Amino acid sequence: MRIEVLLDVKTTLGEGPLWDVDQQRLYFIDSFDGRVFRTTADGRELRAWDVPQKIGSMALRKDGDGAIVSLARGFHLLDFKTGEVELLHDPEPDAASNRINDGKVDKRGRFVAGSMDTQESGPNGSLYSISTGFEVTKLDTGIVCSNGPCWSPDGSIFYFADSWSGEIWAYDYDLDTGAVSNRRTFVKINTPGGGAADGSTVDAEGCVWNAQVYDGKLVRYRPDGTVDRVIDMPVKKVTSVMFGGPNLDILYVTSMAKPPLPRFPGDGVLRGSLFAIYDLGIKGVPEPRFGA
């Protein structure tokens, strides 16, 4: 195994690595600076799009050259050709202290994303599902900071974390309806550095990889919740993970250059870098696109 800096972009809050198997390109975002990036597997051909608000996550669309993005004030469509952003729906118009955060697409093309309290102090967020017809459904409530949505390889189990609950949860997931049920604790986060569960992905063997922000660790959990592997990263503020590359065997890791609140720790010169981890001997699964 080797860890390399793929891009030293100093993202204020790097998040959401997304490998697209069709284009063979890696997307990632800077949540605080409102920017979407795209690059090749080896970090060449970097391109960026600006969005008008803080961005929590994105997913590519099946139709057209664009993405669905969760911005601070709701769900939008981003047109890559023009750079224009169109509002679909703001599910929390009266929650000024909230913003929409992490999200991913299920096997039927729905975009599932949650909101968060920007001060990360109260359970004011919710979890939403956006259908291929742009209908928004609330799936869960009482969340401080929505993070880490992902599914088992067959799509029947949905994993999700409220970062400050100290747990990653598992739900039964109905692919036909997009409904969740039977929420239970998948794992409890126990980090010596006071870290929290951030972004996650599931590999081809059904194991959950979680970036444990502020503790600088990536943890691979088996489907039964036991720890299989821990990787120590060169920075403490790792934020999210995604397998990509031509063979889906490179693990991409985002990080933040500046913590969102003063109580969180700083980092060294590699803060805000996009990392690539090679030779893990593990492959990911292709990420679905949004749409019917």
Rank of each mutant, 00 (worst) to 15 (best):
D267L: 09
I68T: 11
D154H: 07
S126C: 12
D203S: 04
S156T: 15
F186W: 12
D224M: 03
G148R: 02
L88E: 06
T39E: 05
K54D: 00
K107M: 13
D117A: 11
D90Q: 05
D172R: 02
A257C: 10
R222A: 15
L46H: 06
R25Q: 13
L7Q: 10
W169I: 01
F160C: 02
L78W: 10
T254K: 06
R184M: 11
K10E: 08
D90Y: 04
S126D: 08
G291M: 03
F32Y: 10
L46Q: 11
K54Q: 14
P153K: 09
R220H: 06
K104E: 05
D279M: 05
V227A: 13
F275Y: 03
E167S: 14
S273N: 07
Y214P: 00
F32H: 11
A196G: 06
N247F: 00
R229M: 14
V9G: 10
L261K: 09
G83C: 06
F290M: 13
F264I: 07
P259A: 08
P17Q: 07
P234M: 00
F28P: 00
M58E: 11
V202L: 09
E45K: 13
A161W: 03
I3Q: 06
E167F: 13
T226H: 13
A96D: 12
P93H: 01
F243D: 06
V51G: 03
T226A: 14
V105W: 13
V238G: 06
K236M: 09
P17V: 04
L6H: 03
P153A: 06
D228W: 09
E86R: 15
M1V: 10
V208R: 05
R229D: 11
I100T: 07
D20M: 09
G148D: 02
N101G: 07
A276L: 02
F264P: 01
K237N: 14
D33W: 00
A292S: 12
R110S: 02
H89P: 04
G34H: 05
N124F: 12
R110W: 05
L13K: 01
D154F: 06
V180Y: 00
M242T: 14
N147L: 05
D176Y: 01
S163P: 07
Q23C: 05
P91W: 07
N182S: 12
D176S: 10
N124P: 00
E135M: 04
F32T: 13
L280C: 08
Q23F: 06
F111W: 10
I143H: 03
Y27T: 08
S129G: 09
F275D: 01
R271S: 14
L77W: 11
R184P: 13
S115R: 08
D94Y: 10
N190I: 11
D267W: 04
L7E: 03
G43M: 06
C145A: 06
T12L: 02
L26G: 10
Y252N: 03
V213H: 05
Y128Q: 08
N101K: 04
R99C: 04
F80D: 04
S181C: 03
D102G: 03
R99V: 11
L77Y: 09
P153E: 05
A170N: 03
Q53R: 11
I168V: 15
F37V: 04
L274V: 11
F290C: 12
